[in-house]
Design a protein around this nucleic acid. Structure first.
Lengths: 200, 200
DNA sequence: AGATTATGTTAGTGATTACTTACTTACAAG
DNA sequence: CTTGTAAGTAAGTAATCACTAACATAATCT
């Protein structure tokens, strides 16, 4: 006999399966049957917990967004200076991508970009929030005289988020043949040295 | 009566339709029926020109790769100094994304990256070629004393490709509410000024 | 002008999709 | 122990998918 789980546990299980399968099968090709097989229930059981596939995706998006926000908060809480906080924010983001490799693929999925406006807005808001965190810390660094005159905090933040996204894509396309966190942190140090430059 | 076209013209038309629809519908959910309607023929006519959908995608991938290579070559032919060539290479890439907005999505689609191994390798080679162009020009700039000591040409090239990809994602998620080419070139100048910094 | 060929259509195929309906049973509360 | 409910299943649904076979005609060649 199949052991039954609470709706909350099963929902968490389904969302985890979607994240896992999005990486292996692709977010846009993922079917409810694939999900059911991965979880170990019948396909109809999926719809007991999520009325439509779109709402399942929204729940997945929420889960990702929540996870990211928690990671950022922890990164900022555990560090004192603006610069170490900035480093921790980048490290946290890289770590999240390493733990959820489907993230870049979901970011480019049709589900997010075409079908599900709510999901897209949620992701855009979350990414803008991250950018705002970066800008705030870069601003603090500038006020402490740790930044050169060659770059505005806002532009620096864009360069840093691009750095993370670019590395994530390279990592993904290259079959994850390198360790994303240390490689990302190495390039971050390169960029931070450039930011500190005071030459006109 | 429907006017018939040569197989070559029709193939070009079909490939153009795939590129257009990949942006609106998404590469992984695009159906042969969608393509046929866009072109203005019946669905069966698609299979007169391409035996399978996979081979259609191979043709689309070839067309994209050719287009990119031509754009890069033109960018490098029409400019004298390493720095203006570098600028032209970045501008060309941004221009290609602006003209074919589905490019990032196709580049990360399951169709090209999972189903079609040969094509995936071709794309990876093409992107590595781009990176090699960037490294070569940055190397030339370094030898001309135009680069600071704080960054290696290889790392600088990664930062620049990340810049392009990061802007592309921001442009895509933000519903293309800004002009990608000038915004990208503006940030490129910021990064180039940082590269030139000679302070340790 | 007549024959050939290549580009097209009509009308299907079985497989798969998201989702539904009607029924069943594990489990916790009283 | 009984019972109501929530978590499950079996067996469908219509729609859509890539693809095919048989037939039609526009374009081209001789």
């Amino acid at each position: 006999m199949l052991r039954r789980k609470s709706a909350e546990d099963r929902k968490t299980e389904i969302i985890a399966a979607v994240l896992d399968l999005s990486d292996r099968i692709g977010p846009d090709r993922l079917t409810t049957n694939d999900i059911a097989q991965e979880v170990g229930v019948t396909q109809a059981a999926i719809f007991r917990h999520f009325p439509t596939k779109a709402e399942l995706w929204t729940a997945v998006g929420d889960a990702i967004a929540d996870r990211l926000e928690v990671a950022w908060q922890q990164a900022m809480d555990g560090n004192a200076s603006p610069m170490t906080r900035l480093r921790a924010l980048i490290a946290a983001q890289l770590q999240q991508i390493a733990e959820t490799p489907a993230l870049p693929a979901i970011l480019h999925s049709r589900e997010l970009n075409v079908d599900n406006a709510a999901l897209r807005d949620r992701f855009r808001g979350v990414l803008m929030q991250y950018q705002a965190h970066l800008v705030a810390h870069l601003q603090a660094m500038a006020e402490a005289g740790m930044m050169g005159a060659g770059v505005q905090p806002k532009d620096a933040a864009v360069l840093l988020t691009s750095l993370v996204q670019g590395i994530a894509i390279r990592w993904s396309l290259g079959s994850r043949s390198f360790d994303i966190v240390p490689e990302g942190m190495r390039l971050l140090e390169v960029q931070l040295v450039l930011f500190a430059c005071k030459e006109g």
